[in-house]
Amino acid sequence: MNRFHFIIIGSVLTLFSSMVGLVLLPIRGLGNFEAAPDPETGELVPPPLSALEARGRDVYVSMGCMYCHSQQVHPPSVRTDIDRMWGERRTVPRDYMQQGVAQMGTMRTGPDLSNIGVRNPSQDWHLIHLYDPQTTSPGSIMPPYRFLFRTQPIGESGPSPDALRLVDEFAPPKGYEVVPTDDALALVAYLQSLKLSTYEVPEAARARYESKRQ
C-alpha cells in the first residue's frame, strides 16, 4: 500500500462502523429510560434515591467498591445468582437508570450487591461490617474502612446513640467509642437502598419468565 490517505480514511471508517453498534445504538436504545409504574403497586420504579442515598452512591464510587462487587443479576441459564439469593430475577437496563455512573462491575471478588438491602437490611450490620469486615466475616479479604469512622472519647452524657457495638479485639480502648462519619452513614443508606427484588418493572414479567427457565 503506498498511499497514506487510504490508511487514514480506512482506519477512521472502521472505527466509526463499530461506533454504530456499540455507541450509537446503546445511546438510542438504552439511554432514554424514564421511571415507569410498577405493574403491581403502581408506584414509579425504580424508586429514586434520597439525598443521603445519592451521597452514599458517591462514596461507593469514590472508594471503588465496584472493582470487587458487581451489580447485575444473571439468569439461571447462565449463573447461579438467583440460587445464591442475589436477586429473584435478572436485572434489566431500566434497573440502572438511577445510577449516575453505571456500577455494574466486572468482578465478583465479593458477592453481587443488587439485592444487598434485602439480604442484609440492618444498618448496624453494615456499619460494623464496613468498619472491619472481620467482625462479621472472619477471613474475608475485603478491606476495612475504619477511616470512615471516628474513634472518640465517650462524652460526659454517655455513649452516643450512633456508637458501634464492637466486641473483643475490635472494640475501641476503654473510655472510647467508634461513631460513623456522615460518609459512612450515607454509604450504608445507599447499600440498604439496593433492593432489586422489592419492585417489579414492566419488563420484569419477561425477565422473571427467563429467570424461571432452566
Binding site: 463499530s18 461506533m19 456499540l22 455507541v23 446503546p26 445511546i27 436504545g29 438504552l30 439511554g31 432514554n32 429510560f33 437496563p93 431500566r94 434497573d95 440502572y96 437508570m97 438511577q98 445510577q99 449516575g100 455512573v101 453505571a102 455494574m104
Partner: peptide, 19 residues
Amino acid sequence: GLLVLAPVQAPAQPPINWW
C-alpha cells in the same frame, strides 16, 4: 465525552465503556 463530561444515562454506559 459520553461517559464523563456529558454522561449518557447509566444503562447505556457499559457498552460505550467497554467499546
